[in-house]
């Protein structure tokens, strides 16, 4: 089944104000930067964005925050973004902070047809407030529910026209689980190849989870913390 869409504009067709989006990436690594730039242009507002981080002030999801397009963020860590912290502390932005492993598993559960699961993470903390607690093997666990999205937008290294995806290094992060959990999943890839060109043994995300795929026009791939050693 050919999932190829010519460009980012076509890929995001139907994305409207008020929707819930999942956006892959960890920090600025493996984020769908072409799609984010296009959402800025679309000017849609009141978005709920599920993403591990919120970008930095002038890149990634930080662009949507500066543009006041996000109503609510669902994340695990937002320490890199001053505007985020400002909007959150002033109450302009709704924020749901979730332990990283629970966030990953809640996305996975959403795509895997598991409505909820018990995890020890967050027991005895603010995260557990209002959630069912149950003991397993003498240890308390809290009930966490699955997450879903109107659009899941992921970024991969390579993809084929069937929607099969291969990620590179740690740019994989949240992308595979989010790809599973979107009503419509959009994959932006660095290199789009015809079906048959990718080795089926090496596919990370099978094409069944992807509805639309396009090759991104330009990838800046900004580095957040450039750390090196001398030769």
């Amino acid at each position: 089944m050919n999932k190829e869409i010519g460009n980012v504009h076509g890929a995001l067709k139907g994305l409207e104000s008020g929707m819930t989006l999942m956006l892959g990436g960890f920090g600025l690594c493996g984020i769908p930067e072409n799609s984010i730039n296009e959402i800025v242009k679309l000017g849609v507002t009141n978005l709920t964005c599920i993403s591990n981080n919120a970008g930095v002030d002038n890149f990634g999801l930080g662009l949507l925050l500066q543009n006041r397009q996000i109503k609510k963020m669902v994340s695990s860590y937002v320490g890199e973004n001053d505007e985020f912290e400002r909007q959150m502390l002033s109450g302009e932005l709704e924020v749901d902070l979730i332990p990283q492993g629970s966030l990953a598993e809640r996305c996975r559960a959403g795509g895997a047809g598991i409505p909820a699961f018990f995890t020890p993470a967050g027991y005895g903390t603010e995260v557990a407030e209002g959630k069912e607690v149950r003991d397993f093997n003498g240890k308390p666990h809290i009930l966490e529910s699955a997450l879903h999205a109107d659009f899941a937008i992921v970024k991969a290294w390579k993809g084929d026209t069937e929607g099969n995806l291969v990620y590179k290094a740690t740019a994989r992060n949240f992308n595979p689980m989010m790809a599973m959990a979107g009503k419509i999943t959009i994959a932006e890839v660095e290199e789009l190849v015809p079906a048959g060109k990718l080795d089926p043994n090496e596919i990370h995300t099978p094409g069944i989870f992807v509805q639309r795929i396009f090759q991104g026009e330009k990838f800046e791939k900004r580095i957040e913390q450039r750390t090196t050693r001398s030769k």
């Binding site: 960890f26 492993g101 990620y167 590179k168 740690t170 994989r172 689980m177 957040e224 913390q225």
Partner: peptide, 29 residues
């Protein structure tokens, strides 16, 4: 080493890193 940073290869602190022989990559779940 300087000049060999890869934007796709970072640690949880978002710092550029390298891998050792026998390393593996996986998703967050």
């Amino acid at each position: 080493f300087e000049g060999e940073e890869d934007a796709d290869l970072i640690n949880a602190g978002k710092q550029t890193i390298t891998t050792m022989k026998g390393a593996s990559f996986f998703d967050s779940a």
